[in-house]
Amino acid sequence: MIRVMLADDQALVRGALAALLDLEQDLQVVAEVARGDEVVPAARAHHPDVALLDVEMPGMDGIAATESLRRDVPGVRVLIVTTFGRPGYLRRALQAGAAGFVVKDTPAKQLADAVRRAHAGLRVVDPGLAADSLVAGDSPLTERESDVLRAARDGSTVAAMARVLFLSEGTIRNHLSAAIGKTGARTRAEAVRIAEGNGWL
Rank of each mutant, 00 (worst) to 15 (best):
E196C: 01
L111A: 06
A7F: 08
V4L: 06
V4H: 00
L165V: 12
G128C: 04
L27R: 01
D72W: 11
E32F: 09
V125A: 04
E190F: 09
Q28F: 03
A118Y: 00
A136R: 09
V55L: 08
A65K: 09
G59C: 04
V50A: 10
A16Y: 02
G137V: 00
T157H: 10
R91V: 14
V115T: 05
V40F: 13
N198L: 14
R3T: 09
T183D: 07
I172M: 05
A98C: 13
E32T: 14
G121T: 05
P140A: 02
G155T: 08
L134A: 13
M161L: 09
R35T: 13
L149A: 03
R186H: 15
P74K: 02
R77G: 01
T187Y: 12
A179F: 09
R144P: 02
A65R: 04
H47E: 11
I2P: 03
R14M: 09
R123N: 05
A42V: 06
D37I: 04
D54P: 05
V78D: 01
E196D: 14
P107E: 04
V29I: 10
E196W: 00
P127Q: 12
G197Y: 06
N198C: 14
Q110D: 15
A108P: 15
A99H: 06
S146M: 09
L94P: 07
A98W: 10
A19Y: 13
L134N: 07
H46V: 00
L53T: 07
A179H: 11
E145C: 06
R123V: 14
R71F: 04
P107D: 10
D126I: 03
R144I: 06
D8A: 01
G62K: 09
E24F: 04
R153L: 11
W200A: 01
R163Y: 13
F84A: 10
G75A: 10
P74Y: 02
R35D: 14
S156R: 15
L111R: 05
D61G: 10
P58Y: 08
V76F: 00
M1W: 03
K109W: 08
